[in-house]
Deep mutational scan, measured.
Amino acid sequence: IQLFSRPDFLGDHFSFEDDQAALPASFRPQSCRVHGGSWILFDETNFEGDQHILSEGEFPTLTAMGCLASTVLGSLQK
């Protein structure tokens, strides 16, 4: 999965292949690309809070990911 700090796959980005119990504190994903398989994104660290399940594809905004525009993602799980 690739996470981007701005909508439309712009800004800083991080790529992950494994579960992340905590995303970098200063990084707030605003768009993402899922390459193969599914990922669960969580509103809180340690895989807690609301879950957003994404299958392979491109998600140019938080709302395209099924999140509110104000959502701050905290962790993710493959």
Score class of each variant (00 low, 15 high):
Phe27His: 00
Glu17Tyr: 15
Phe14Arg: 08
Ile53Glu: 14
Gln30Thr: 03
Arg28Ala: 11
Thr45Gln: 14
Gly37Asp: 05
Glu17Gln: 12
Trp39His: 03
Leu62Gly: 01
Asp43Asn: 10
Thr45Tyr: 11
Asp43Glu: 15
Cys32Met: 03
Arg28Glu: 09
Ser26Asn: 15
Leu54Gly: 05
Ile1Gly: 01
Phe47Asn: 00
Asn46Glu: 08
Phe16Leu: 04
Ser70Glu: 13
His13Ala: 12
Asp12Gln: 13
Phe42Pro: 00
Ala22Met: 13
Asp8Gln: 10
Phe42Lys: 00
Leu76Thr: 08
Met65Ser: 09
Ala21Thr: 10
Asp18Glu: 14
Leu41Val: 10
Gln77Phe: 02
Gln30Asn: 06
Ser55Pro: 10
Phe4Cys: 04
Gly49Ser: 02
Ile53Cys: 13
Leu23Val: 03
Arg6Met: 15
Pro60Gln: 02
Asp43Ile: 05
Ala22Lys: 13
Leu68Gly: 15
Ser75Lys: 07
Ser38Asp: 15
His35Glu: 10
Pro7Trp: 01
Thr61Asp: 14
Asp43Cys: 09
Phe47Lys: 00
Leu68Trp: 09
Glu44Arg: 14
Asp8Lys: 08
Leu23Ala: 04
Leu76Tyr: 01
Ala22Ser: 13
Ile40Gln: 01
Val34Trp: 05
Leu62Cys: 02
Ala21Pro: 13
Pro29Met: 06
Ser15Trp: 12
Ile53Phe: 13
Pro29Lys: 03
Leu62Ala: 06
Gly66Ser: 04
Glu44Asn: 13
Phe47Ile: 02
Glu56His: 09
Ser15Glu: 15
Met65Thr: 11
Arg28His: 10
Pro7Glu: 15
Gly66Leu: 02
Thr61Tyr: 04
Val34Pro: 03
Leu76Lys: 04
Ser15Pro: 04
Pro24Gln: 05
Pro60Trp: 00
Pro7Cys: 07
Gly57Tyr: 00
Thr45Gly: 11
Leu3Pro: 00
Phe42Arg: 01
Gly57His: 05
Ser26His: 14
Glu44Met: 10
Gly36Ile: 03
Asp12Pro: 08
Gly74Ser: 12
Gly11Met: 00
Ala21Met: 09
His35Ile: 15
Phe16Cys: 07
Glu56Val: 12
Thr71Phe: 12
Pro60Arg: 06
His52Lys: 08
Gly37Ser: 09
Glu58Ser: 12
Gly36Ser: 13
Asp12Asn: 12
Ala64Gly: 07
Asp18Ser: 14
Gln77Cys: 12
Asp18Gly: 11
Gly74Arg: 15
Glu58Thr: 07
Leu62Ile: 08
Gln77Trp: 04
Arg33Val: 14
Phe47Asp: 02
Gly11Pro: 01
Ala25Arg: 12
Glu48Val: 09
Cys32Ser: 04
Val72Asn: 15
Phe4Asp: 02
Gly37Tyr: 00
Ala69Arg: 13
Leu3Ser: 04
Thr71Tyr: 08
Ile1Gln: 13
Ile53Gln: 12
Gly74His: 12
Gly49Asp: 05
Gly36Trp: 01
Phe14Ala: 07
Glu56Gln: 11
Ile1Phe: 07
Asp8Glu: 12
Gln20Ser: 09
Gly57Ala: 02
Asn46Arg: 05
Ile40Met: 09
Ile53Val: 14
Phe14Ser: 06
Val72Phe: 10
Phe42Ala: 02
Pro24Asp: 04
Asn46Ser: 07
Leu76Ile: 14
Phe42Glu: 03
Gln77Tyr: 01
Pro7Asp: 09
Gln20Ala: 13
His52Ala: 03
Ala64Phe: 00
Ser31Tyr: 07
Phe14Asn: 07
Leu73Gln: 07
Arg28Tyr: 11
Gln30Lys: 09
Ser15Ala: 10
Leu68Pro: 15
Leu41Met: 08
Thr71His: 09
Ser15Leu: 15
Gln2Glu: 14
Phe14Val: 13
Phe42Gln: 00
Val34Gly: 05
Phe59Trp: 09
Phe27Gly: 01
Asp18Phe: 07
Asp43Val: 08
Ser26Pro: 07
Ala22Trp: 09
Gly11Glu: 00
Gln2Cys: 11
Glu58Phe: 04
Ala69Gly: 14
Glu58Ala: 10
Val72His: 14
Ser15Phe: 12
Asn46Val: 00
Ile53Thr: 13
Ala25Val: 12
Ala69Lys: 12
Cys32Pro: 02
Thr45Leu: 11
Gly37Gln: 01
Glu56Leu: 05
Ile40Asn: 03
Ile40Cys: 08
Gln51Cys: 12
Gly49Ile: 01
Glu17Asn: 11
Arg33Met: 10
Gly57Leu: 00
Asp19Ser: 12
Gly11Ala: 01
Glu48Ile: 08
Thr71Asp: 09
Arg33Ser: 04
Pro24His: 00
Thr45Ile: 14
His13Met: 14
Ile53Leu: 13
Gly49Arg: 03
Ser70Gly: 15
Phe4Met: 01
Val34Met: 00
Gln77Asn: 06
Glu58Trp: 06
His13Trp: 13
Asp19Leu: 03
Asp50Cys: 12
Phe14Trp: 13
His52Arg: 13
Pro29Asn: 00
Ser70Gln: 11
Glu48Lys: 14
Phe14Cys: 11
Ser26Lys: 13
Glu17Thr: 13
Gln30Tyr: 02
Phe27Asn: 02
Arg33Asn: 02
Phe16Gly: 05
Gln51Phe: 13
Trp39Phe: 07
Thr71Ala: 09
Ser70Trp: 07
Cys67Tyr: 10
Phe59Val: 01
Glu17Arg: 12
Gly49Ala: 03
Gly66Lys: 04
Leu3Tyr: 03
Gln77Glu: 04
Thr63Asp: 13
Arg6His: 12
His13Ser: 15
Gly66Ala: 05
Phe9Leu: 04
Cys67Ile: 08
Ile1Met: 01
Ser15Ile: 15
Gln77His: 06
Val72Trp: 14
Leu54Arg: 05
Gly57Gln: 03
Leu23Asp: 00
Asp8Phe: 13
Lys78Thr: 07
Ala21Val: 12
Thr63Gln: 14
Gln51Glu: 12
Phe27Thr: 04
Pro29Tyr: 06
Pro60Gly: 05
Gly49His: 02
Asp12Phe: 08
Pro24Trp: 02
Phe27Glu: 03
Thr71Trp: 08
Leu23Cys: 08
Cys67Pro: 03
Asp18Val: 10
Glu48Tyr: 08
Lys78Asn: 06
Phe16Asp: 01
Ala64Ile: 03
Thr63Phe: 09
Cys32Asn: 02
Gln51Pro: 10
Thr63Arg: 12
Leu68Tyr: 12
Ala25Leu: 11
Pro7Leu: 05
Gln2Met: 09
Gln30Leu: 10
Gln2Leu: 05
Leu54Lys: 00
Glu56Phe: 07
Ala69Gln: 15
Ala69Met: 11
Asp12Ala: 11
Thr71Arg: 08
Gln51Arg: 13
Leu41Tyr: 04
Thr61Val: 02
Met65Lys: 08
